[in-house]
Design a protein around this nucleic acid. Structure first.
Lengths: 142, 142
DNA sequence: CACAATTAGATTGTACACAATTTATTATAC
DNA sequence: GTATAATAAATTGTGTACAATCTAATTGTG
């Protein structure tokens, strides 16, 4: 009786297409984000700030599922580009507050065109995209 | 008339939950893969080899959506662990053929337990998982 | 109030990802 | 047959990810 290894086939994995689709999709952003001179990680950090200026690294990390080990260098790079400022909170010196510069705020005007451009690269109907969105949200819960 | 920036809200993005869910899911593998002393990238490369031994770097890359810039160091690391061998093809010296060592083949016995352990971490019903799987596959097409 | 525990970021070290370039080899065109 | 184009990996350089550790500031407890 041969042991069954089907569970190990790449085509039977849920995680692998998730991992691959995420990378392929992020790649679609590159030509558009190159025009803004930012990376994808910087783009999602900017999205948080465009929605609500002045957030701590902790808040940003919880929102983006990233820790300080990832965010610290990313935010320093964004600061050196003149997109954000980083300063310690007066209330609690442990917290570092990230805020938009004028240039960072201005970038929103160019960025607002990006989602529509990228959505054209998706190989899904509107309905499929909605279904996918809610399933992914569910994966991220808890 | 205020311009509409809703398209830039993080909660309105499809790519972001895809990106975040992929990373969170890969993270679930870590404790189980630690026991096998391999990383997630090495795990999916091994899955390809367990299915069909002896593949070129090019084939592996097409299957995993990874290029030689990523695979070369990963495969060298796997070689140094004694899991695979790397040798040039006799037919075409440009091609490098990756094959399993005995130890690499043996690891399959331990690995076969991993998928079941990880699937318990998924917050989805069986039906939802199937739907998600096919939507992700569609995203990856062409 | 002292001091242990907690918390927020920063740092360190390892491992990808990926664009761009380079090198070696094979295929093609004249 | 030789120059040219194409192909497969390797290399280089930049930018994340993330676990583990460290440091400084704050909080909780006796």
């Amino acid at each position: 009786m041969e042991k069954n290894y089907d569970a190990l086939k790449l085509d039977n994995q849920l995680c692998f297409p998730l991992y691959a689709a995420a990378r392929e999709t992020v790649k679609h952003y590159r030509p558009f984000l190159d025009e803004l001179d930012i990376t994808y990680t910087q783009y999602i950090a900017m999205m948080v700030l465009w929605e609500k200026d002045c957030v701590t690294v902790k808040d940003l990390g919880e929102r983006l599922f990233l820790d300080s080990g990832t965010l610290t260098p990313v935010l320093k790079s964004m600061e050196s580009k003149g997109l954000v400022e980083r300063k310690r909170s007066g209330e609690d010196e442990r917290c570092l507050i990230v805020s938009l510069t004028e240039e960072g705020k201005k970038l929103k005007e160019k960025a607002v065109e990006v989602p529509a451009k990228v959505s054209k690269c998706f190989n899904l109907t509107g309905e499929e995209a909605v279904t996918l969105y809610f399933l992914l949200k569910k994966v991220l819960e808890k």
